[in-house]
Computed example of a mutant assay.
Amino acid sequence: MATSNPLLRYAESRKNLVGGVCGLAGVGIALTGAAGGLWPLVIAGLYGAGALIAPPERPATPEFAEEGDRLDGVRADFATLRGYLAEVELPSAARERLSALDALIEALLAPGLVTDPEHLHVLARTVRLDVPEAVDAFVRTRWWSRVTPGTEAPERHLERQLAVLHEEVAAVTAALEEADAMRQEIHTRYLEGRGRD
């Protein structure tokens, strides 16, 4: 059961468990006499090394109800996604990109704004699939990147993915603005033409 106390949460964490197992190995080494007088440092060092290499805690990827591409369903799933993203540790650059994408999606999910099924599908796919997959892949890869140096930083991949998703959602915004401008122009022509009759 999860607890809100940070000390108890750490006691239950993977980092503490792996560190504890490594620390016990240090106790075994100390009992054999191989550590000599440095046995406290060996135990503490092995605990620290275990805690550092342990995989980080990951919040579970959200489960979305199959609502299709209805606006109310996408809005509910967006609220679920926000809860998940609040629990995930992200670098500041990725968090900024995610905040910009979040604000754009929130604006587009206002009732009555997006009526085109294709645009709503883009938003649904972004909320239910693309953003959770990008963030979850980052969280999983972040740990492995510590073990295998020399690979491209997972933060860079996440930032690039969020930039692409922002462009896709911004294209929906541009299409809506263009449709509104065209509608306004058509109505202006209609009114001007009506005045000539």
Rank of each mutant, 00 (worst) to 15 (best):
A179F: 06
T173W: 11
A181Y: 10
P154M: 03
R97Y: 01
V122F: 03
T141L: 12
G48M: 12
V127Q: 09
P55T: 06
L129N: 12
V21Q: 00
F64G: 04
L8Q: 13
E192T: 13
L85I: 08
R140G: 10
P117E: 07
D69C: 10
L104E: 11
P56C: 10
L113W: 00
R142P: 02
E89G: 09
A137R: 08
D69W: 11
V122N: 03
L90F: 09
E152G: 00
M1H: 15
T151D: 07
L158E: 01
L98V: 01
G36D: 06
L104P: 03
A181D: 14
F138C: 01
E57S: 10
M182H: 11
P111W: 02
V169M: 09
E12V: 08
V21E: 01
R189N: 12
R70I: 04
W39T: 04
A103R: 12
E66Y: 09
G50S: 07
A11H: 06
H187T: 06
D130G: 09
A94H: 02
A179H: 09
V169C: 06
L24I: 13
R160A: 08
D102I: 04
L41C: 07
V172T: 08
D69H: 13
T80P: 07
A110S: 15
L108P: 02
R142T: 00
V18A: 10
E63S: 14
A153C: 03
A171L: 13
L90I: 11
E12R: 14
G26K: 03
Q161D: 13
R58C: 09
T32S: 15
G23I: 05
A93P: 03
C22A: 11
R146F: 10
S13P: 05
P117S: 10
L101E: 06
E155M: 01
W39Y: 13
V164P: 00
L31Q: 14
G37D: 13
E89D: 14
H157I: 01
G150E: 02
G68S: 11
T148N: 02
L123D: 05
P6E: 12
A124I: 01
D77P: 07
V114E: 00
G19W: 03
E66Q: 12
V131F: 05
A65Q: 05
P40I: 10
E152H: 06
G73S: 10
E118M: 12
V27P: 05
G193F: 13
G48P: 03
N5S: 08
A93Q: 06
I43W: 01
R58N: 12
A65Y: 01
L109P: 01
A137F: 05
W39N: 03
Y47K: 08
A175I: 04
A30P: 08
S13H: 02
H121V: 06
V135C: 07
G193S: 15
R14M: 07
K15R: 13
H119S: 14
V131W: 01
D77R: 03
T3F: 12
G20E: 05
V21Y: 02
R58P: 00
D102S: 14
V114N: 02
E168W: 06
G193D: 14
H121G: 08
I186V: 15
T141H: 07
T148S: 05
S145W: 03
D72N: 04
P59R: 14
H157A: 00
V114F: 03
L38V: 11
L120D: 00
A79P: 08
R128W: 09
A175Y: 02
